[in-house]
Each structure stands twice: as structure tokens, then as C-alpha cells.
Amino acid sequence: MTRNPKRPLSPHLGIWRWGPAMAVSILHRVTGNGLAVVGALAFVWWLAAAASGPEAYETFMSWATWWPGYVVAIGLTWAFFQHLFSGLRHFVLDTGAGYELQSNKLWSLGIFAAAIFATIGLWLIILGKGL
């Protein structure tokens, strides 16, 4: 592969500044890979523990309900919703829509808000069950 050195690389690696769209984009990758490792392992651990019997399940639950367990679980919930809403944004972008600067910025900011609200809402419901 040869590249014409007179042409700029895109996206430019040296000249950029943070914006909502690029933050959503890199967070999509970060949350996706975080979920792929931590989320998937925790999910399969939960299922394998349930299949192994009450003692193994109790071991899982004692980790999950210890305070670092809550931190991980709430973090995974946020990562899940961030990745979900960001993924929906990708479906819209795939159709060729939503690239106008203003609407792209607006939807990117909306994804941050939606992910945080959904995380808070879901955990209020879970904690409200008094477990």
C-alpha cells in the first residue's frame, strides 16, 4: 500500500480538539470492549453459578452485592446504555443521515444524557426492589 505523502491523513492525527461526536465515537469502542470482557465474563459467571447450585450462586451474589460489585455493575449498566444509544446513532449514520454539524452534535450530547438517565432509572428500580 502506497500513500501519496502530499495528501493529508484523515482523520488528522495531530490537529483536533474534543467534541461530543468524537467522544461518543471513542466511548463506543471503549464501552463495547469493556462490556465484551468484564460484562460478558460477569454474565457467564452468573449463569454458570446458577447452574452449579445454591452455594456457587451465593458466592457470586456475595461478590455482586459487595460495594465494589455495585460499582462494577453500575459501571457496566452505564457502559451498556452508552453503547446501546451510540449503536442506535450508528444505525442512523449508516443510512447517510445525521451528519450535519448541528444535528450530529445534538444527537451526540443526547446520547450522553440518555445513557446517564437510563442508568439512574434502572438502578432506582433495582434498588427500589429492596434486594
Binding site: A40, L41, F43, V44, L47, A48, A50, A51
Partner: peptide, 13 residues
Amino acid sequence: GGAALGVFSIARI
């Protein structure tokens, strides 16, 4: 491997 463990666990239950 992860998928196999998950599916097997569900099947066992």
C-alpha cells in the same frame, strides 16, 4: 468458550 459455557449453563437449568 464463553458462549458454550453460557449456553450449557442455561441448558442445565
